[in-house]
Design a protein around this nucleic acid. Structure first.
Lengths: 340, 340
DNA sequence: CAGCTTATATTAAACGTTTAATATTAAAAA
DNA sequence: TTTTTAATATTAAACGTTTAATATAAGCTG
């Protein structure tokens, strides 16, 4: 139906090769096109309303100009978390700015292995993974297929590029904020073990505490609301004097659970207990009191990952394949700080 | 690198055509393969670890087995709304169950027209659009390219399949719930005009009110939190006796704004004003009080759209191209109803 | 057994690009 | 003028499938 290169070549009175080189960047070392023919070809293309067929191009070059984006399979959780929408937007934005398309995959129990392999087969040039399980078979599969993988927020044991947020600094930032507000007994509601962000955030907290001469108190958490609530209930049950007056939670969701617990105990935040969360998710502004949180530019993670991946695909020399993106403190009601 | 059909043909001592027919469904009318050769081919494929190259297949057939999914461009809004993640999950789920992949696009101001066309070019078999502007150039472009478009929650003027939720019934359901709780003065915070869900929801509200012999009162809204807040402030300023004791908001976000306003007036929900929202978004459970809302199975919208689209692509006879998915009422604190 | 039909196979032409290997022409150098 | 180099072009072979058009052999029918 649509015009193809042959049609253009015929109309312009040239060869297909000249058309190919003219219409796309000259890849050939030995082929030059004179300004005159170039002009004829461009005009013919214009007149015929030529549209390149990317499929044919991909078959010939082995490059699809498509990168994959695999959503993790945290059942009934990823579903509702705005986090991934943000990452997705970052990825599609950066990709489309560089002329790439994005293929969306959802990881499920079955497709962790072979299914994924089949889906990926030759269809994408590279893959972006978000906080994958540390030993996903997808890595091997991509290596076999020669597809670079950029990982966001996973273990950085992987060979490919790895984008993460400065969790250690975030932990410090949150803790120092509470310390500066005069709190001494600050508890930390830590994240799920096995998730790469958990330890650095806790370490930042510990270092800030010991630098201030306060003793640290970490309590169990797993990033979920209810676990945050339960751990906080235990904290609130501590005898007066030992009870923390502030809590730094490893994410907003568990901070939210902490707020539940505080309310249940007849206490009030930030008056009785100050809270700082982590992620600055959208619901930080929905919760009552609004949640003071560490912001980590989620969309930037996606943008950066896509950008890095594409640079690698295009053979650029990469200075830093393991960037650590900066975090910032977003002050809201729950920390009891006067707005700055 | 990997084995191709030619390699299999050589090893099995047959022709490429036999391999193609054996390994994929027999499309040819005139080609049969005996059980014996079939077996040889399958074994050779197994031994060589054959993987089909979908690109080459697509080039030959003109079918990619990829459907597109375009996120709308509502700046700074779609970013944060878990709604689209749910839709996306529904789509990828249904697509992958039927052997299709999903290409993710983000609509932006520039790519509404030509950019989108370029991106789509030959890469996808069909497209799913979510609440697109009623006269998007994308429709024309897809028509030109012969690509069917399934629309979720848009105007159903489009020729293609259209999946929507039963907004009229939802409006009725919400209103009847409040009526049954004894409310007489119930206001409706309507949605943005021009969005297809706005009018039916309002009509359902009006019909339920008039059936109950109450008079309707619709106030301006646009699905946003602050507008919901402002309209509600005006409602609360009405003289006692005229002030509504309940509000049905066209979505959860504006319901949330209504809660803001109620709190600002020193009132309390549900004690002073009962609220029912719409969408049953994730933050319905985050807000205080938790938000009674109409649930519309967002993931189902995506699932159904993908399913319908693929059926059309595969030439199935479609009974209902404009399904209306059922809604349900999710009772939570803000309506002041005892849990059922 | 000639003449059909059916089952089973192969050939070769697409699909629309890219690009290495040549070929031709023109300009510069000797 | 002849030779060398550079610029500009074409040819044709990939890339890996699908499928229409044939071909061959075997099994029936009368």
């Amino acid at each position: 139906m649509g015009a193809k290169m042959l049609d253009i070549a015929n109309r312009a009175g040239t060869s297909i090769a000249a058309v190919s080189v003219t219409l796309n960047g000259a890849k050939s070392k030995t082929l030059g096109v004179s300004p005159a023919t170039r002009e004829k070809i461009l005009q013919a293309a214009e007149e015929l309303g030529y549209r390149r067929n990317p499929l044919a191009g991909s078959l010939a070059t082995g490059r699809t100009h498509v990168i994959g984006f695999m959503l993790p399979s945290v059942e009934g959780y990823s579903d509702h978390d705005p986090f991934y929408t943000l990452v997705a937007n970052g990825i599609t934005g950066a990709a489309s700015a560089r002329g790439y398309n994005v293929m969306l995959y959802t990881a499920t129990a079955e497709n962790q292995g072979l299914r994924a392999a089949r889906m990926i087969d030759k269809r994408i040039d590279g893959l972006v993974l978000v906080s994958p399980p540390s030993s996903s078979p997808i890595y091997e599969e991509c290596e076999r297929q020669g597809i670079p993988v950029a990982t966001i927020l996973g273990d950085d044991t992987a060979t490919g590029p790895h984008i993460k947020s400065d969790d250690y600094e975030g932990g410090k930032l949150a803790t120092n904020h509470l310390l500066k507000l005069g709190h001494v007994k600050i508890a930390h509601l830590h994240g799920r073990f096995g998730v790469s962000t958990t330890l650095p955030r806790e370490q930042g907290y510990k270092d800030a505490m010991s630098a201030a001469g306060s003793s640290a108190l970490s309590v169990p958490g797993d990033f979920n609301r209810n676990t945050g609530r339960e751990s906080t209930l235990k904290l609130m049950a501590l005898p007066e004097g030992e009870r923390p007056t502030a809590i730094f939670a490893a994410n907003d969701l568990s901070a939210h659970g902490a707020l539940d617990a505080i309310r249940e105990c007849g206490l009030e935040s930030p008056k009785d207990v100050a809270i700082v969360g982590y992620d600055d998710t959208w619901y930080s502004t929905v919760v009552q009191p609004t949640l003071c949180s560490i912001h980590m530019g989620v969309a930037d993670l996606g943008r950066r990952a896509a950008d890095l991946l594409i640079s690698i695909l295009e053979g650029a020399y990469i200075v830093d394949t393991h960037p650590v993106l900066p975090v910032s403190l977003v002050i809201r009601e729950s920390s009891g700080s006067p707005r700055v």
